[in-house]
Amino acid sequence: MSEFLPSLSALRAFEAAARHLSMTLAAKELHVTPGAVSLQIRDLEAQLGVRLFERKTRALALTVEGADYFATLQTAFRLMREATAAIAARARGSVLNVTCTAGFATYWLVPRLARFEEIHPEIDVRISASHRVLDFKRDGIDLAIRHGLGGYDGLVSERLVDDELVPVCTPRLAAQLGDHPSPDTLAGFQLIHDVYRHDWKLWLEAAGATKVDASRGPIFMHGNGAYEAMKAGLGFALMRRSFLKKELAEGAVVAPFPLGVASRLAFHLVYPGAALERPAVAAFRRWLLSEVKS
């Protein structure tokens, strides 16, 4: 047996009257007569078995029960308005839900996003930073940017960012390396790892370093911990050149060793084939691919 729920029209009448503390203003907002609002509220009070208003001469005040009820209904109506606005906007094609890793969002996507918004101010891009494998339909995702080998079953996968990994550090730490450092110099400094913890081993092998233990150093599994630790001067982190293009150019971050190592892993744009039927999705994909080439 379902629980009792008052009619939506009665709840709207009460919420409007409580917000304005006026039957007249509530009636004006709802395009009905003050008498109709008053009748709806009296019926609601009878159904609930409580008084919601103290009715005084030329004044309206909420009872304790009315104030509690109003606070809850305000939240409920706000959520309904937001849900309605969101689904209406999505139907117009103006909302775009994108999921990507926190690192990609921080270092690559967000710094460039203003350029897309300038070209397409009508599209509301919503970014969800997550490493989870999401269900596009169930989770309402339009596009995903994922780190891996590509080739996701039933989905289109396009390679986006696959540039080289380089060790980076702060200018202050770089000054401690001396005039002609070799990769083996890193044996005297801390290596900082992220979730892709085997990358240091690949880089050291490619650089010919034989005196550096690739397994030592802290591992940051989530978010931008490795980058933040490096910025704090705790050691060297492996980062993609494109992620730190601006910082490297400005000298905020230093890459003392020119060698970069490519990985089979890359960031891929992933989406269901039918997703491009939506103009907003197609526009964002075109922009992403143009940004990669620039």
Rank of each mutant, 00 (worst) to 15 (best):
L191G: 05
G93I: 04
T72A: 06
R146L: 03
F136A: 11
R132T: 14
R81A: 13
R55D: 05
L73W: 06
A59Y: 04
D179I: 12
A91V: 03
R126S: 11
L60H: 07
V166G: 00
A175D: 09
E54I: 07
A129E: 09
D179Y: 08
Y69I: 13
A105H: 06
D163T: 00
V156N: 04
E54V: 12
Q74E: 09
D162G: 12
H131D: 15
R159M: 14
A129D: 01
D184S: 09
R115N: 14
L134H: 15
C169H: 01
A174M: 09
V195M: 12
R197L: 14
L191K: 00
A61K: 08
E65Y: 00
R159V: 12
L177F: 14
T101V: 09
R159T: 07
A102P: 00
N97C: 05
R92C: 10
F104S: 01
V64M: 07
L191A: 02
E164K: 06
V166S: 00
L62C: 04
T75G: 14
A91Q: 11
I127A: 01
D124W: 02
A175N: 10
Q74H: 09
Y152T: 15
L186E: 04
A61F: 09
F136M: 12
L60Q: 04
I141M: 12
A91W: 00
L165S: 07
Y107W: 09
R90K: 11
A144H: 05
R126W: 00
